[in-house]
Simulated assay, not measured.
Amino acid sequence: MDDIIRIPGTNIRIGLDPIIGLFPAVGDILASSVGLVLVIEGLRHRLPVSVLTRMGANVILNNLIGAIPIVGDAFSIWYKSNVRNLALLNRWKSGERTAVRRGSRVFMAVFLTIWAIVFIGWIIGWYFFIKFLISLAP
């Protein structure tokens, strides 16, 4: 899905993910569905929750940014969530379990910290927006 075709004259590889992502909504849903196959494969191999969450976050991030026309497709070419998830699964199967688990825990700590900051900023923004609307009331 991420690196099946090499662009001639470059080292850049693209796959079906950014190509089908060009079709609004349907393409993004199909790309995410295929990406979830690797997460399900991780479940079958009994990966820890931290690694499964990291894999899921890769798919979600690719889908969220991939929904932005043109920019999302360029992001998908660069980020390659399926390649990342396959690498996590292969590293786990090859015995690098401690490294994969540790890296996933660090990833989750950073991800949750950023999410909390964005969420708190969102709440503060809504608070001031509502306060502003109340001040406009007669």
Score class of each variant (00 low, 15 high):
W92T: 05
G72I: 04
I124F: 08
I124G: 05
E96N: 10
W126T: 13
R84H: 12
R91N: 04
L64S: 02
W126L: 15
S135Q: 11
A109W: 08
R13I: 11
F119M: 14
T113F: 13
I130N: 10
F128L: 12
D3A: 14
I68W: 00
L22D: 02
H45Y: 15
K93S: 09
G72Y: 00
A25Y: 14
W115D: 10
L89W: 03
G121Q: 00
L133S: 13
P24L: 05
R91A: 01
Y127I: 09
Y79W: 08
G15R: 02
T98L: 10
S135L: 11
K93G: 03
I20Q: 00
V59S: 03
G35I: 06
P48I: 11
G35F: 03
I65S: 01
I123L: 14
G56E: 04
E41I: 10
I19C: 08
L112Q: 03
M1C: 11
V39P: 06
D17R: 08
S104D: 01
P24N: 02
W126K: 14
L133V: 10
R84S: 08
P8N: 02
I14G: 05
I60F: 12
Y127W: 12
V59Y: 03
R97I: 07
G9M: 08
N62K: 00
L133I: 10
I40S: 05
R46K: 15
E41Q: 15
W126E: 15
L36V: 06
